[in-house]
């Protein structure tokens, strides 16, 4: 899933400064799971903004909506009528959702309430960790199911740097050294041979920016 953080209240407040009618739009997918932009968090942000406005004696109207997801047009369309009642839309989705919403309603000011962090997993209650950098050229078959592009701070493909110590990363003793993990996993699997050969440099030209993918069955239509 995509993991995000909420922006600080002060930052959101300053973004909406001068606008009185604000619609906060949550997303029911990833950001809901990582407890940053779902229905509940929309409610919290709305109350915080109302309280902040109240303290300053400002009159402010805040609407709340949470869509199934913001990365699909069919759900975004549901805002069609309601959105016209507001000056500004604050999206609590990931960066993709914010942009898709802004694209569909390009006559409205759409602002982000989150900082999108990474593609990750739920490691424990309230703890999410990154697992994929979306590099478009997966190496997990060779590296024992542990991604060096993501887990190694330097994204090294050919083994650990000299900065690792006791299985930890030079960047922080809190972080595991990806290559120690990879070595141990492959050793356990009896597959160390898969990292003995020199791994070629990454081909960055397969990471087209922005990315675009068309399903075979739909290519003709395009």
């Amino acid at each position: 899933m995509i993991v995000a953080d909420r922006k600080p209240l002060e930052q959101i407040s300053s973004m909406i400064e001068g606008n009185n009618k604000i619609l906060i739009v949550g997303c029911g997918e990833c950001v809901s799971v990582c407890m940053v932009g779902g229905e509940k968090e929309v409610e919290i942000l709305a109350s915080q903004l109302r309280m902040a406005a109240g303290k300053e004696g400002k009159k402010i109207e805040i609407g709340e909506a949470t869509l199934e997801r913001q990365c699909d047009k069919e759900y975004l369309e549901l805002l069609k009528d309601r959105i016209e009642n507001y000056d500004v839309v604050v999206s609590m989705a990931c960066g993709a959702g914010v942009q898709f919403l802004a694209e569909m309603y390009d006559h409205k000011i759409v602002l982000p309430a989150t900082n999108t962090r990474f593609i990750g997993v739920t490691e424990g209650e309230g703890v999410w960790t990154e697992r994929c950098r979306a590099c478009s050229d997966c190496v997990l078959a060779e590296t024992g199911g542990i991604c060096p592009v993501t887990i190694c701070a330097k994204g090294l493909l050919n083994g650990p740097c000299g900065g690792t110590n006791d299985g930890k990363c030079e960047v922080s003793k809190e972080k595991d050294c990806a290559w120690t993990l990879i070595y141990n996993r492959l050793n356990k699997l009896g597959r160390l041979d898969s990292i003995r050969e020199i791994f070629p440099a990454k081909k960055y030209n397969v990471q087209t920016r922005p990315g675009r993918r068309i399903h075979e069955a739909f290519k003709e239509k395009e």
Binding site: K154, L157, E170, V171
Partner: peptide
């Protein structure tokens, strides 16, 4: 070394290649 151990902590770490490459 990684960027953040030095004095330009906000700079982009490149590491397009590694020492082997």
């Amino acid at each position: 070394d990684y960027i953040t151990v030095g004095d330009h902590v906000e700079a982009m770490p490149v590491f397009d290649l590694d020492s082997v490459l």
